[in-house]
Amino acid sequence: MAKAKTTQRPLSAKTCKQITDLMVHYLTDKLRPKVKQDFQKHLAICPDCVAFVNTYKTTVKATATLRSDEIPPKVRDNVLGFLRAKLRRVTALVFFLLSQLAA
């Protein structure tokens, strides 16, 4: 908590390092208005940081393309088969124990 406050303290000396450190908050639009204003002011005068922000954003966007929700059919069948077999054994054991108790 304390760290977050320090990170978002209005920038008195706007250095490229400070701008870089705020990038995560900037991308999720979590900077406080004053800090965001300082961030944008710095970008207006620093082409190096503009380039850095653009390439940082491009990296995040390119990384997102690695996302996949696919599970190979063979893996899916293996795991489902495993789960069903395991549950059958558990059910059989429960019935056995219940029948023993009843007897």
Binding site: A13, T15, C16, K17, Q18, T20, P47, D48, C49, V50, A51, F52, N54, T55, K57, T58, A62
Partner: peptide, 22 residues
């Protein structure tokens, strides 16, 4: 990782914007 001078500015300048080149 990016490197910075003691005064907090980028150590290697200019920083190239390769976002459109990728």
């Amino acid at each position: 990782l990016p490197k910075f001078q003691d005064n907090g500015h980028h150590a290697a300048r200019p920083v190239i914007d390769w976002s459109d080149n990728l």
